[in-house]
Amino acid sequence: MSSDRSQRAPVGLKVAAAAGLLFLHLPILIIFVYAFTTEEKSYVWPPPGFTTQWFAVTWNRPDVWEALTLSVQVAAISTVIALVLGTLCAAAISGTSFFGRETISLLVILPIALPGIITGIALRSAFSLAEIPFSFWTIVLGHATFCVVVVYNNAVARFRRTSGSMIEASMDLGADAFQTFRHVILPNIGTALVAGGMLAFALSFDEVIVTTFTAGQQQTLPIWMLEELVRPRQRPVTNVVAMVVVIVTFLPILAAYYLTRDGDQIAGAGK
């Protein structure tokens, strides 16, 4: 009986857990350490010297700023599109029952289940077939395909917990559709939307594969990093940027976790 066991885990399990956690996070710490190294051509362990000069160098490189701005813009616009479409879709799926409802639900979720490379190739061939030139907007479209899923999953879980009669009660008490949305629906799904939106932003911000296929000459931040790795000079600049990416990605996910931990899991967080 498991309940008869003592509260303390065996030593072997503790060691294994510690090893697992180290394996997950040590490489990230090493990336951080290399941001302060004096060696700029290759990664040498231990670092030959300590410097903070790369922060200044990074700050003054226009290509970093361009990539960062592009990534933030793409992530922001994809998130807004995902919030609108994902919420509408979740409302339709959970509020009514119609022929093919489950199919539509599955089709909405599919982009996140498919490997990114398939989404990417599919979008690329669709864009060239329709003769749409690759631009900022093709990246946004590519990112929106999986951002919608994240928002949809969060919203649909919350809609399911929101009883349908609550909306009817609001109408019954004299509220029109807009008032019902503002006073009843939004307060009830708000935190789910914030969580889904932040997750969508984070996913878009570090996306590489779909972006590779849908971008023209532009470089989002992750693409820029990939290119930078094969160049021999100013290597630690990449590490400085990596630190920023980790922080920018981590904070919203952490916030999303705290916002939804009372019940909802953050659906789709595995992408």
Partner: peptide, 20 residues
């Protein structure tokens, strides 16, 4: 005539109170 323009009110089976 939509529900919000009727001088009729409902007590729902599951009460449908607004939790927020």
């Amino acid at each position: 005539v939509p529900p919000y323009r009727r001088n009729v009110n409902t007590v729902f089976q599951d009460y449908a109170l607004f939790p927020h």
